[in-house]
Design a protein around this nucleic acid. Sequence first.
DNA 1: CATGAATGAGGGTTCATTCAT
DNA 2: TATGAATGAACCCTCATTCAT
Lengths: 219, 219, 219, 219
Amino acid sequence: MTTTDTTPRLRADARRNRDRIITAAQAVFTERGTEVPMEEVARSAGVGVGTLYRRFPDRDSLIRAVAQDAFTTVLEDTRATIEQEPDAWRALSQIMHRGMALRTVVRLTVLSSRARAIINSDPNTDAVHNEFFGMVDALVKRAQADGTLRNDVSTGDIAVLSSLALQGVQALPEQLRSLAPARYIAVLLDGLRADNPRPLPGRPISAEEVVVRTPEVEV
Amino acid sequence: MTTTDTTPRLRADARRNRDRIITAAQAVFTERGTEVPMEEVARSAGVGVGTLYRRFPDRDSLIRAVAQDAFTTVLEDTRATIEQEPDAWRALSQIMHRGMALRTVVRLTVLSSRARAIINSDPNTDAVHNEFFGMVDALVKRAQADGTLRNDVSTGDIAVLSSLALQGVQALPEQLRSLAPARYIAVLLDGLRADNPRPLPGRPISAEEVVVRTPEVEV
Amino acid sequence: MTTTDTTPRLRADARRNRDRIITAAQAVFTERGTEVPMEEVARSAGVGVGTLYRRFPDRDSLIRAVAQDAFTTVLEDTRATIEQEPDAWRALSQIMHRGMALRTVVRLTVLSSRARAIINSDPNTDAVHNEFFGMVDALVKRAQADGTLRNDVSTGDIAVLSSLALQGVQALPEQLRSLAPARYIAVLLDGLRADNPRPLPGRPISAEEVVVRTPEVEV
Amino acid sequence: MTTTDTTPRLRADARRNRDRIITAAQAVFTERGTEVPMEEVARSAGVGVGTLYRRFPDRDSLIRAVAQDAFTTVLEDTRATIEQEPDAWRALSQIMHRGMALRTVVRLTVLSSRARAIINSDPNTDAVHNEFFGMVDALVKRAQADGTLRNDVSTGDIAVLSSLALQGVQALPEQLRSLAPARYIAVLLDGLRADNPRPLPGRPISAEEVVVRTPEVEV
DNA sequence: CATGAATGAGGGTTCATTCAT
DNA sequence: TATGAATGAACCCTCATTCAT
């Protein structure tokens, strides 16, 4: 849990509870979707519903907080990876593999139209998207210049493919869940290498295209 | 709509109602998920709830019927493809590409744990799975023998990867929905070719493993 | 209960239930205010909450229906009285005395700001007010011409005074409730006779003035 | 705010808090009824809920304190009026007219059955009632002996009628609120004069009768 | 048999009251 | 002691399912 200090001064116990709730909600939302009974979230955070509602006046505001927290983590991880790995392809590859931190984001963004709507309407979202996709964009270009990443893809493609590998996990039996993502991301990466001679159908998809506001898709 | 004639003789109008309901439910489930109010399903089928419940005693049995219908279609499509395309890699490739018919199945299987549970507990499911995966299995082996498909994957891997490409579509903006699957399946197929030298992490996943009963995971 | 046939064709049982609900709600609202638990209203109508909500999608719409029904009754009673009693003073007097039918209206109008808001925002309200106050206005003028009603009052005054006598009942012990209104209306009427020589402070209040929209007065 | 010193010695600031709370509660209760959230009362008194609850262990005890305070004021005003006005009719008349001080009491007594119940069950209430009604009783008898007040009424009638005029104000549009009571009390007084020849229906109501315990009637 | 009404359990949210800081 | 956090019971409303017409 990354602590986004929105509400400046909060009594120690309140702050602790707030954090526990976000952590619990993240887990529960990722496991069971954003429509779980609030009571469930409260229980798994070890607090009463009342406390949950005092911190987050409705379900939407909780979803928003979880999303912000997840985004923050993703951003930090991405920055760190880029700083430590000079090779563009390897950096990209690590971001996709390590992306388990991304799973929450993907899960929220892709599997819940409600979360999607909330995230999209958050004024902060643009800044986060810009920074994140800006970083990945630079990597994509470097990797293509290096001749490691195929030229007929763009950042949006990478984003979609990563999210696929991450979200697909959901339906798999328990024992495959941890194994699967690494494996399928490896397949995807092989499919993304510059040495694939057959051009892809369609055209490169930019980052902007994939984050366009999708309305009414209930999951 | 493919009619799986479970209930032997049904008066013509009753049969017609049953079909309308399944067709409507399939559309509504795919659009808005399996948790839509039953009243909604009834309305969109142009019948009263009473009629809906007369045909399908509860939501689960409706989901089951929709899934069976979709599976039947998939089976038929797969059989036809294999019959007409002698090359194993190309047949596989076509099945994955054409798979848009699979979308309902995937949607139900992957995005709704409820549907998943129902499908898994359906005594008929095994037969369908066996036939479908039997056919794909044969193709996989042939393609590997042909040296077109990489050796470190198995049928389960193919199934998971296909479903990824199909389900991911869901969250994309309208204009990308039709474009995306072909594109990402192409990436996946490139990643699956025999000429990829780096071994995948993990181990081949069989068909049996991916259909193992997943417990209560609500989406 | 006066049946205002708003929803034209309704199955016999549904119509019966609708009527029972309005009747019960009127009683309960009058006894215990408009904030009673809906469950209470349902119970006292002998139906489940679900039925209540099917007929009246929320509390406001139930309050509105009760008010409309009460208004209709008041209008009918007033018309009948005027038709049968040629003497203006006696007609006024009867309207005020009989006014027990008015009690619900008064109770709703005066004691619940919520009901007041609902009634005021009802497009039908103006017409009802106009007809009702039109009739009373004519009586007031006739009675003053007859020399039975004091000249320094107007319709609004009568309305306020009647409502006072009706609502005051509320706080009295059970055994006085039926006795009290007649008694206090008699006092008021004595105070309203033309033979009272001392002019009243203030000025005559017209009907329009007392029905002006009063906002925020929670009871 | 009249301070009824129930809790003997209280530290100066505690006393100050107690007073602020009662004053705020009186205002809030009169404006928005006795069911406002306690948090609201606390806020408007400028203290935390904790402090509120330290002084008044529950809502009822706060209502009781507010009522006692208001009663005390009424008592003092009444005593003063009687001392200064030797004519019984005029004294009565002034008490009724000046009664704006009574408004809180009436508001609580008449419009909130909860307040009514609390006041009625307060052991102190009898003493207050006795003193107040004792004074009014004496006035009523003197005025009837003087031939100014009609003989077929008693103290209870006066009490009810006064409260009517006071409470009715509530629902009137702002600009009539200050005008109305004087006007309607004048009508009532005219109705109460000894020169009204028609006997009232019913029978004189004594003071005791109107304060009888009313059970659970929520407003 | 089709229809739409009735039921009531379940989940969301508020707020009186208690309790840790 | 004052504060504001935590709790949970209570009420609103929805909707799956049953049943009368």
